[in-house]
Nucleic acid binder design. Structure first.
Ligand code: SF4
Ligand code: SF4
Lengths: 150, 150
DNA sequence: GTATATTAAGATAAAATAGTCTTAATACCA
DNA sequence: TGGTATTAAGACTATTTTATCTTAATATAC
């Protein structure tokens, strides 16, 4: 898989946060219930997003987490980098040590093009856009109530 | 990472086999030495390629492994599927259960394009082409003797 | 201040992946 | 026939990732 499970959880949760208009704090319990992710595990993942300053957290009653900046200022890549690191940029899916443009492997010519596309997509797509897309899909699919729970 | 380490080892080894003109058997020891991969681990990985009928193996003196068919008839995808399965096609990097065209997640529109590109590349690129590319790169880089060891 | 709600942190466990080691099976060769 | 080279198979270990559970810290409200 391209992204770790932790990273997918982080994405799903941050998109869900972005899709709630409410700009107060949302409890992690509410998120974990809605996304069907273990509360404690999600807590840890979101702690990393807080450390990375993508989220703000607040303890106690009416506490929870919220986006640290507007949803359109947090990119897909921001979330991926916070959890999985920058392997996508500095390493490579093929993960050969020390490779790159100056020291390419036999797949570099073919792969680097695709890799660049993925990086660009991740940089251009942000939580606001993803959340909008998510709502659009849900409105389409309302009849069947079937949708992938990103 | 997109591919497991086992899968990367399988790729590196099969490309190396393809790049040896010799159509006799090559010992796994020779491959593991040249690629700096644990002999026993590589043995296991290549056993899977043998089971998948991408390689043929032969025991005893002058034994080893060789490609089961011409290098241009074994695709990148063949190797990936043999080791990592068909997750790339049937699952997804985002790995949400039961998603797909009929039940897309909020990233599907953006991601599925890139995913298709990757699948196409893997299907079109074969061991012969990769091996040729590998040799080309080595001839370029001979001065510095630096290259990524795919 | 005390009880309650909440995130933070850390200890532990389970599962998946990666790696090592030993033995077995098979084939060649002398 | 016996010795050697080689892959096959399986047991075992180590590491990483994922998940759970417990306790601590912090904030609120009464
Ligand atoms: S494709 Fe490029 S970045 Fe990836 S392993 Fe090969 S040389 Fe490195
Ligand atoms: S991008 Fe498409 S295939 Fe991947 S998880 Fe989303 S809906 Fe599924």
């Amino acid at each position: 898989m391209l992204l770790s499970k932790s990273c997918i959880y982080a994405l799903r949760a941050s998109v869900l946060i972005a899709s709630k208009k409410n700009d107060g704090f949302i409890t992690i319990r509410e998120l974990s219930d809605e996304l069907n992710i273990s509360f404690h595990f999600l807590t840890k993942v979101l702690q990393e997003l807080t450390k990375a300053e993508l989220l703000e957290s607040y303890k106690g009653p009416n506490g929870g987490v919220k986006l640290a900046r507007p949803a359109n200022k947090i990119t897909f890549m921001d979330v991926v980098e916070s959890i999985d690191g920058d392997y996508m940029i500095n390493e490579c899916v093929l993960g050969l040590p020390g490779c790159g443009v100056m020291k390419p492997c036999a797949l570099h010519d073919q792969w680097s093009v695709l890799k660049t596309d993925i990086i660009n997509m991740m940089n251009e797509y942000n939580l606001e856009a993803i959340a909008k897309n998510r709502e659009l899909q849900r409105s389409f699919e309302r009849k069947s109530a079937q949708f992938a729970n990103l």
